[in-house]
Design a protein around this nucleic acid. Sequence first.
DNA 1: CTGGTGGTGTACCGATCGGTACCCTATATG
DNA 2: CATATAGGGTACCGATCGGTACACCACCAG
Lengths: 184, 184
Amino acid sequence: MRQTKKDELVEKALGVFYQNGFHATGMDRLVAETGISKTSMYKHFNSKDDLILAALELRDRLFRDWMVQRIEALASAPADRILALFDVLGEWFDSPDFKGCMFIKASAEFPDAAHPIRRQSAAHKRLIQSYIRDLARQAGLNDPDRIARQMMLLKEGAIIAAHVTRSDTAAHDAKEAARQLLSA
Amino acid sequence: MRQTKKDELVEKALGVFYQNGFHATGMDRLVAETGISKTSMYKHFNSKDDLILAALELRDRLFRDWMVQRIEALASAPADRILALFDVLGEWFDSPDFKGCMFIKASAEFPDAAHPIRRQSAAHKRLIQSYIRDLARQAGLNDPDRIARQMMLLKEGAIIAAHVTRSDTAAHDAKEAARQLLSA
DNA sequence: CTGGTGGTGTACCGATCGGTACCCTATATG
DNA sequence: CATATAGGGTACCGATCGGTACACCACCAG
């Protein structure tokens, strides 16, 4: 039962941190929105950073699960799945509460690269990159590592374009660029 | 003389905001580091947001001036200059105080897309994109707009890779991808 | 000299920050 | 029943947040 309650806290915190920012969100607000008391909050999490870390862990799990599931639903051949990544990004960008990548935002707010929050953000990106690398390997492409790094550039670039510049062609542009890079 | 003093304030604020974040940096700290009094600070800037806006304006000017100057020093043909962009990015990533793109960070910390800080961040990206579009047009490339959008994807992706993932091949990877996209 | 005027610093505002001491209650065990 | 214990809430901690009231002081005009 406690696990469920704690998970509910993390889920709520995830939403507020994502929409509102980390430093801009106070523990008082989270306490007010979850209806729990501050004491109970700090019984579950030793500090605000701990709560942020838990939220990022949940985000990593939810996002990658969703991404992989959508990719595998849209295409079956490994090479097609790499391209489908950008269709999935497009779905994400078009969702009403899209506010950019939570891990990019976390990295923006925590300047110390050795901070656990930064390490976790880097780990999230690495996991996605290795998923793409596996797809490239399965597709029999030359230098799957390089392909994965290039696809990641397009993916992160598209996220920034969609979020900062509010481009509505970001996912499409990235997919076309990816197609060219893969056909070489 | 006063103009110089105010510029000095903005310059100092720019450095601290960039290294430390916007919400994480208090006005008290800026006041302490610049040696000025809080009253004088608020005589020059009506609010913290005003100071942030001034810092972003300075950053936009300094960064684009530096980028264009370095690009033009490294190459002369327009197509070569597009590729030189990524060499310049590499120089930036290797500089000891690189902490990512200030406008991406600003967009991460201010969730309201209509906020002046967000508008200014988008404007900065658009100015760079139009610079690349002009280069593509001068180079006689097909669809300069699409080329510019693709190059921006690679540029922003490389910034994220260098900052979040701490990739040390980001600029090189982006340059190779750009070369492939331009040769098509 | 007197009397403005504009820029400076001191000291402070209420609100909020992350975090905690303390009490209270529900339940399990004797 | 009494009692130990864990998880809950109230109320508060000192520090810091963005921002301001007000006294001060150098300057120039008369």
